[in-house]
Computed example of a mutant assay.
Amino acid sequence: MGGCDSVTYHNVTQNVFDCLKKKLEHAGVKVPAGNEGEIEGYGVKGHFKWDGATNLTITITSKPLILPCGTIMGKLNDTVHDCGGAT
């Protein structure tokens, strides 16, 4: 089980951040309260940190070997964009 490179999203306002957390939770990913913490779901673990203004960094720290980083990051990118953020 390895991780993936960190990705930083921009234009992540409070509304975008709240939307993202709700969508992840609705999809079965455990997301703690606050601006920083560990996320987990479907065998994928990661860390997120939002600066409280516009930048959100997510690092996937471990994942199943058969699940490519590109698939995980693609889903995250789609969700962030759906909520109004940008890469």
Rank of each mutant, 00 (worst) to 15 (best):
F17Y: 15
G43S: 01
A33N: 12
G34L: 08
W50F: 07
P64R: 09
N11M: 05
T87W: 02
D18W: 00
E38F: 00
G84H: 07
L20D: 06
V80N: 13
I60Y: 09
Q14K: 11
W50P: 10
K21G: 14
L20P: 01
C4N: 07
G52D: 01
V80C: 14
M73H: 14
H81Y: 08
G84R: 03
I39F: 09
L67I: 12
D5T: 04
D51S: 01
A33K: 14
N77R: 14
L56P: 12
C4V: 10
T79L: 14
V12C: 08
K63G: 07
L65M: 03
G41K: 01
L65N: 05
S6E: 15
T79F: 02
W50C: 09
N11W: 02
A86W: 04
H47P: 00
L20A: 10
G74R: 04
I72W: 08
L20C: 05
G41Y: 02
G70N: 12
K75T: 08
G70V: 00
K21T: 09
L24E: 14
G84K: 03
I72H: 07
C4F: 08
H10Q: 15
G70W: 01
W50I: 06
K63Q: 08
G28H: 10
G41V: 00
L20M: 13
G34E: 07
G34W: 07
T61F: 08
A33I: 01
D5R: 04
I72A: 03
K30H: 02
I66R: 01
H10V: 13
P64C: 05
C83Y: 05
G34F: 09
G74N: 13
V16G: 03
L76S: 12
G74C: 07
C19R: 06
Q14G: 02
L56Y: 13
L56C: 11
C69H: 00
T87L: 13
I66S: 07
C19Q: 06
V16D: 03
S6W: 06
G85M: 11
K75M: 10
S6C: 03
N15L: 03
P64Y: 05
F48V: 09
P32L: 04
T57G: 11
T71A: 15
A33R: 07
L76D: 11
G46T: 11
N55L: 08
N77K: 15
G84L: 06
G84I: 04
N35F: 00
P68Y: 03
T8F: 12
K63A: 06
A53T: 10
V80W: 10
G46P: 11
M73N: 14
G84E: 04
A27D: 15
V12W: 03
K30D: 03
G37N: 02
S62W: 04
V7S: 09
Y9E: 13
L76R: 09
H26L: 10
D51I: 01
N55W: 00
E38K: 13
C4A: 09
H26I: 03
F48G: 09
V31A: 04
E25V: 13
D5I: 00
T79R: 06
Y42S: 11
I58E: 12
K45W: 07
M1W: 10
Q14A: 12
K21F: 00
A27N: 14
A53D: 07
P68I: 06
G85Y: 12
C19S: 05
I58V: 15
